[in-house]
Simulated scan of single mutants.
Amino acid sequence: MKLGVFSVLFAQKTFEESLDYIASKGLEAIEIGTGNYPGNAHCNLDELLADEGKRKAFKQVVESRGLTISALSAHGNPLHPQKAISQEHDSVIRKTIELANRLEVPVVNTFSGCPGDHEDAKYPNWPIAPWPNDYQEILKWQWEAKLIPYWSELNTVATEAGVKIGLELHGGFSVHTPATLLRLREATGPAIGANLDPSHMWWQGIDPVQAVHILGRENAIHHFHAKDTTIDPINVNRHGVTDMQSYSLMLDRAWQFRSVGYGHDLKVWADIISALRLVGYDYVVSIEHEDGLMSVEEGFTKAVENLQQVLIKEPLGQMWWV
């Protein structure tokens, strides 16, 4: 496995400055935002698609630091009921797939999206209860009319480009659990897989180790984010896990994102890394920093230090003791 980072946390630096800083920490990979929610501070899609020379220079500036690009990330809602939003997000995702093909980057990360509850809806509707039965009707319409048709087409687009799509299992979007990811994958195709982030599993009550097993047995983990979560035992009883308070209200929230090792200890993270190795995932573990108690530099540095203790890097080799 290789240790990497989702570089959007260094958007305030130039691309070269961020690469130098990342390499100085001993990392081997970088995940780059191309637009939509992550922004495109370090990657101008249209410019790179139009100019082969600039693409070569872009790739060379990464490789000259001893780094590889693990994924291009365009997290968005391509199924948003407002067409101006969905069309823009869809366009960025398609361009990102094309650029990944030309840069020989194997994975594009994004969200599944979440539609509204009918064709003329204005906002996404995320059903999370089976009753009243209205929610079941909404869910059925969303999957049959929106999710499966859209991602069937994107599966074909990605397959033809030689690229895999990593959908981040994230609350607020139609694919947010191992089951919903596998449901979509079965209905669309194997180019669709997970960008698995344990932080979103923990707050939903899902054990990330078991999520790795469930998805890994189906070869459905295309990329992996390293971010932690802590659950406040008092606040969760007041607000539940679907806490709608701002992330900035950390003292009062039921749960919050933390840097690796500050929500769960390193034995838990060692179990996650071991599970990834067990199911055959031997790609990049990409740090994502969204810790409201730490600066970007401190949170990133502590995540690097903690993960370096548990990451399994060397090939297994022969079991000499068998």
Rank of each mutant, 00 (worst) to 15 (best):
K54W: 06
K302V: 15
A161R: 02
D134H: 12
I165T: 04
H80G: 15
E297W: 01
E160T: 04
E288A: 09
S248D: 13
S174R: 12
L103I: 07
D252I: 01
W269C: 07
Y281H: 02
F300K: 01
T96Y: 04
L48G: 00
L49E: 10
L169M: 14
Q136R: 11
L19Q: 02
K59L: 15
V5Y: 01
G317S: 05
N155A: 06
I93H: 00
V163R: 10
P78C: 14
E144Q: 10
N133W: 08
V157G: 02
I192R: 15
W321A: 08
L103N: 01
S64C: 09
L278P: 01
L27Q: 12
S112N: 05
T180C: 09
S18C: 13
G53H: 08
E28C: 00
E63A: 15
Y281A: 12
W321I: 11
Q60Y: 10
S112F: 04
R102Q: 15
V212R: 07
T180P: 02
E297M: 06
M250V: 13
W321K: 06
G113Q: 12
G317M: 03
G76M: 07
L307V: 04
M244E: 08
L251P: 06
T110A: 03
G76P: 03
V157A: 01
N306F: 06
I206Q: 11
T229E: 05
F300T: 04
K164E: 15
Y123T: 11
L293D: 14
V212L: 08
V236Y: 05
Y123M: 12
V241H: 06
T230V: 13
A145Y: 08
E52T: 14
S199V: 01
Q136F: 04
L311E: 09
W321N: 14
V8N: 14
